[in-house]
Amino acid sequence: MKTVAYCHPLVPSEWIESHGLRAAWLVPHDVEAAAEAGPLTGTCPFARAVGDTLASPDEVGLGAEPLAVLTTTCDQMRRMSGILDETRPGDVFLLNVPSTRQSPASREYYANELRRLGRWLVARGGQSPSAERLANAMRRQDAAREAFRRGERPADAPTWCNPVAMEFTVEAGRNGGADGVVLGLIGGPLRRRDLAVARCVRAAGGRIVLDATTGGVDLLPAAFDPTTLARDPFDELVRAYFDELPAVFDRPNDRLHAWIARRVAERGVRGLLCLRHVWCDLWHAALPRLKETAGVPILDIDLGDELRGGESRLAERIEAMIESLRQD
């Protein structure tokens, strides 16, 4: 079965799977090529790693020639898709996700983009989905997400979120009882090397119960409404994703602020770690207001800088934060 890799939660994995294809969250190589000077200096390391990985996808288990769906949700990824389109023409689909949701036309635009993605998948070996097949794929994913919310850990790497985020839940003691200072995560998509953050949190006596990173286990589409799902699964898919899922690129991005503040309060989170990739303007500029709206302190972790210097500096900063939270 052909694999379709994606790395943004606004790409519905159900939609890919309903076309008879395998959806897989793209976990890129950990190689830090972006740190090198050269023509791509200044490129977001995550976007760069995605580009590098799609150039040699075998190494991360995506098969020899996977298809990929990237999104317009940040400029750097949008431009990376253009570079890939030159080297792997026809293998990369750029899904245009509107940044504004003030007008019904934006919703319709997103829906049409999903339909266009569907045609693209069919042209590459997928099968045009019946409403029933789509509904079944949606029910499967919904059930898997619901089971996770109840505390069950999936046996296999999930296709509906970043599998590194799933590993993070274990490393960071999500279900580790009542001990430890309770923290949350916000920021860009996690890479495998970012598990160092989870280790540091555990070592310092904290645990992470909220993951709102891009592709994280908590920033998921809304649960599907069974009635609407039965009547018009495609429209329900659009609702659960486009209407309900807040994102840092939304303009304005009030929904994200409200969502984070609500989750922080619900879960008793006492501090947030913002894990952002170097050059990620969107999370970077969102931080000053988040520090006002989240209701808890935020530790800004620039992943490139922190991890380049080894884990010791990162560990110290996290330790200091947790200590100060304990004293509050």
């Binding site: 940044s99 303009r251 304005p252």
Partner: peptide
């Protein structure tokens, strides 16, 4: 009035900061 979407992240991010 600001256009957003297929624009640079710099202006999209800074204009959001202006708004807030």
């Amino acid at each position: 009035v600001c256009s957003v979407g297929a624009t640079c992240d710099d202006v999209a991010a800074i204009a959001q900061r202006i708004d807030e």
